[in-house]
Every structure is written in C-alpha cells, then in structure tokens.
C-alpha cells in the first residue's frame, strides 16, 4: 500500500526510496514536493489594565464555545515549480467554522462534492426543502494557489468554534 502510494507520486526524487523504513510522517514529508504542517491554537482573552486583549496559545484546556485557529503551513521543498496547489481541510465534526471570515472562503457543505462561497450554497432544511447554508453547515474548506515556486511557503488558517 505504501509502495503503491509512493510510486503514484510522479516526479519523486530518488532518495525517497531510501526512507521507506523511516517513520511514516517523515517519509511522507520527504516523499512529497510540498510539506504540510497542521497546527492548532486556542484563543485566550486576557484582561490587562482594563483592556481586553486576545492571544492565541497552545491548547491546554478546551471547552465548548472556545475559539480555535487551525493553521496549515505549506512549503515547496522541491526544486520545481508546483502548480494548481489545492489544500483541502475537512472541518472536524466537534467544531464549526467561525462565522467571521467564512464568506471569504471556498467551502463545501456536502463533504467536498460541491464547492463555492457560503452564500451560494444550500442545504436541506429538514422539511423537504432547501435553505441557505450557514457557517455551521460547512464540512470542508479549500484553498487553491495557482503557483508555488521552489522554496515558497505560507500559512493558511481558519477559525473554528468548539460546538
């Protein structure tokens, strides 16, 4: 299975074959031309001298209603230009996409079958009809970057709220 997957990555550099015995995660990162690293932080509201400041910290305690920021850091680790770079992130079921900023994202409300802006999508209303999709209906987010030059990196983020 692993061998099949690696052979499917056409353009793989030769050294990847020597990493088959390495841990799976490292192997995946080296085999691919692009590295993806996922991270999560939780919003903490800190009151200081009467002013409220928001900070993002590594989650220690997370409860319903908390705001999380999920980030995906990408980096083209190859010497070649990468095109049509599409990052897809399923929204974990226990969280929902935060309403703020949701309209600017390319989202799916049906597990990735159809995509669009939130305002253009509809879901079943449970009464036999359709209603406009809400941020809480989003199942997947997608980012598309036309070109990724060698060495180019960046971070994609989305905000979510623990249901």
């Amino acid at each position: 299975m692993k061998t099949n997957w690696i052979s499917a990555v056409i353009g793989m550099t030769a050294f990847a074959a020597s990493t088959l015995s390495a841990p799976a995660l490292a192997e995946t990162a080296k085999a691919a031309q692009v590295e993806l690293e996922s991270d999560v932080k939780v919003e903490k509201v800190v009151a200081e001298n009467g002013t409220v400041r928001k900070t993002w910290v590594t989650p220690q305690v997370v409860v319903p209603g908390d705001r999380l920021i999920f980030s995906v850091r990408y980096r083209n680790v190859s010497a070649d230009k990468v095109e049509t770079f599409v990052v897809t992130n399923p929204i974990p079921q226990p969280v929902m996409l935060a309403a703020d900023g949701a309209d600017a994202l390319d989202v799916s409300v049906d597990a990735g079958r159809n995509w669009g802006s939130l305002g253009a999508l509809q879901v079943a209303d449970g009464k036999g009809g359709q209603r406009g999709a809400l941020n809480s209906d989003v199942t997947h987010i997608r980012w598309t970057l036309p070109v990724l030059n060698p060495g180019e990196s960046g971070t994609l983020t989305y905000n979510a709220i623990v249901r």
């Binding site: 990555v9 056409i10 353009g11 793989m12 995660l25 995946t28 990162a29 691919a32 031309q33 692009v34 590295e35 993806l36 690293e37 996922s38 991270d39 999560v40 939780v42 989650p59 997370v62 999380l68 999920f70 995906v72 990408y74 190859s78 070649d80 230009k81 990468v82 095109e83 049509t84 770079f85 599409v86 990052v87 897809t88 992130n89 399923p90 974990p92 226990p94 969280v95 990724l148 994609l156 623990v162």
Partner: peptide
Amino acid sequence: IENTASATYSSGSASGSVSSNTVTV
C-alpha cells in the same frame, strides 16, 4: 478534535498529493 489537511498539486505533467500531520485537541 482531530484536524488533518491534505493537498494536491501538479508539477509539469505529473501530479502529487500530500497529507499534513494530524493535530488533536
């Protein structure tokens, strides 16, 4: 709460895919 991103891309006439690590809360 487990979050994993994946990506597809093309390079020349070839295509590839990659998954991120999974972060768990």
